[in-house]
């Protein structure tokens, strides 16, 4: 049987499968359906200082082989996450979790990371500097190397946990941003977040999404994500969590060959709530077919 364990900054995962932030809540909905402890880890719902309703509805749109969301960081706020969500999560998930943190100012990122640093169950902090939904901020940090570095440095100064910067694909040079984060002390890179997209309802002649635009995800973006993981792997020496349209075990292997140490599953959780258990079951079988004895051996294999 193939060893499918992998490692992120000293944290050993039973497998590389991690539900992505924003598609898995705080685990509760999925814990009703299956034992979520089979996962490598999961990245919980992006958390900000204040509770947020998010953007106006409708904020979901169908696309060919994908979807657009403009949920806009709806979350209960850091206090409720620490006081209510994390204790409830501990009842259903016993492994270290990935805390996804967002902010509208450097201070907010710092504040949230300082608070989450004290939470024992958090194994990694994933800092979202790329959400394209919120007019007030987010986007700006992820699109300039200087701003990305500033957030990285600020967050690193308040936590001893590994910090993974989650990058936006909506930039001209993904490697410049990744290098800036690494230089500022990031322990790892998560990529990619959603691609900015839109749909128009031709019957009404108006955008489908109330906020006009939103983040495009799903299988359609996989080749873009894979390309960016491949490029970033060549540019930095810190681990990468690869994501973007991953929908099957074959995609996971491809992502890891491009350079990902672990893989997040996003939109696929929404269309098939059992996609992660299915991939985890299929992965060792696929590895045997491909004559892979140890899954972590293939990380970056495609670079020759």
């Amino acid at each position: 049987m193939t060893d499918i364990r992998t490692e992120l900054s000293g944290l050993v995962l039973d497998n590389p499968i991690i539900p992505a932030s924003g598609t898995f809540g705080f685990g509760r909905e999925f814990a009703e359906l299956y034992d979520i402890n089979i996962l490598g880890s999961f990245s919980f719902k992006g958390t900000t200082r204040e509770a947020r309703f998010g953007n106006p509805t409708p904020r979901i749109a169908e696309c060919r082989e994908g979807m657009i969301n403009s949920v806009g960081l709806a979350n209960p706020g850091i206090d409720a996450v620490i006081n209510e969500e994390l204790p409830a999560m501990r009842e259903v998930f016993t492994k270290p979790v990935i805390a996804n943190i967002s902010g509208f100012s450097v201070d907010e990122y710092k504040y949230c990371c300082e608070r989450i640093d004290k939470e024992e169950q958090v194994g990694i902090i994933e800092v979202n500097i790329s959400c394209p939904n919120v007019h007030a901020g987010g986007m700006a940090f992820g699109t300039s190397p200087e701003a990305a570095a500033e957030v990285t440095e600020a967050v690193k100064s308040v936590t001893s946990k590994p910090v993974y910067m989650k990058l936006s694909p909506n930039v001209s040079s993904i490697t410049d941003i990744a290098i800036a984060c690494e230089s500022a002390g990031a322990d790892g890179i998560s990529l990619i977040n959603t691609l900015l997209g839109m749909r128009i309802d031709i019957r009404r002649g108006r955008p489908v999404i109330a906020n006009k635009m939103g983040g495009f995800s799903g299988p359609a973006i996989f080749p873009v994500a894979l390309r960016m993981v491949y490029q970033v792997y060549e540019a930095v020496n810190i681990p990468i969590i690869g994501m973007g349209g991953v929908s099957c075990a074959e995609d996971v292997v491809e992502m890891m060959m491009a350079g990902a140490s672990a893989v997040e599953i996003g939109a696929a959780n929404l269309t098939d709530p059992y996609i992660c258990p299915k991939i985890i079951e299929r992965l060792p079988v696929l590895c045997e077919e491909l004559k892979i004895n140890k899954l972590s051996d293939i990380i970056g294999h495609a670079h020759g």
């Binding site: 999925f30 509805t57 409708p58 959780n269």
Partner: peptide
């Protein structure tokens, strides 16, 4: 009724404001 992503509470796409919160 609201446009939904998942239909089972995971994506928070279909939120509404109520007197007892979102």
């Amino acid at each position: 009724e609201e446009r939904m992503g998942c239909g089972f509470g995971a994506c928070v796409g279909c939120s509404i404001k109520t007197k007892s919160g979102f």
